[in-house]
Design a protein around this nucleic acid. Structure first.
Lengths: 106, 106
DNA sequence: TTGACATGCAACCAAATGGTTGCATATTAA
DNA sequence: TTAATATGCAACCATTTGGTTGCATGTCAA
């Protein structure tokens, strides 16, 4: 589960919308997810495949339907491992910015 | 400062590496940033422009050099406004996943 | 003032991306 | 069994993306 795949998956607004939709109602089928979207089913399928590859969505075949479940773990890992690093330097970076702005407009 | 620009900016590993570099040493010039990168200066310039557009990096012209400063605010906002939403549904989503796996492999 | 250095701009290119259409397959229900 | 439904696969296309090269501009230092 590469972090790169997660970042790339999150880069597209349609895919974030799909995650939102699953966040609102988990376990939706492909067709259910398509109803909110303004594109063909095949386009949605491709987006879901990318989300699956990033391990952000897990699926289960249930007869002729396919249920989609949100996996919150990768998002959580990004929050902890990646964003956390910047949080640790946040005050320092902000004071750098402040100093810069003060020098810029005296 | 659209959140979409931030997500797209973060999607590229080179740009995340640039943010890492600025996190390690803030205020680097273009040439300094280029030294760590395995591509031409012009390519780095383009990446930095995207980071600037997402407001993740702010610059200051200092004579013939250009200093680059990390702006942690957009990352912080993503953490709070976007990731927070999924955090709130995290336990629910995880139990959904658990149930799904139990049904799948009995 | 002149040469070296730091950056900017623009054209160009290959590959990836996001979308489409058309058809195939598999499952359910009448 | 057959028709409708849910999804899968593949070819195709336009646009975006990430990179290059070549040259221009602006600033510092000898």
């Amino acid at each position: 589960m590469s972090m790169d795949a997660v970042f790339r998956a999150l880069a597209d607004p349609t895919r974030r919308q799909l995650l939102d939709s699953l966040c609102a109602r988990n376990g939706q089928t492909l067709n259910a997810l398509c109803e909110h979207m303004d594109m063909t089913r095949q386009a949605v399928t491709k987006h879901l495949a990318i989300l699956e590859e990033a391990n952000l969505v897990t699926t289960m075949r249930r007869g002729r339907e396919k249920e989609h479940y949100l996996n919150p773990v990768p998002i959580n890992e990004i929050a902890e491992r990646w964003i956390g690093k910047f949080e640790r330097h946040r005050l320092k970076a902000l004071s750098d910015l402040k100093q810069r702005l003060e020098r810029e407009e005296p």
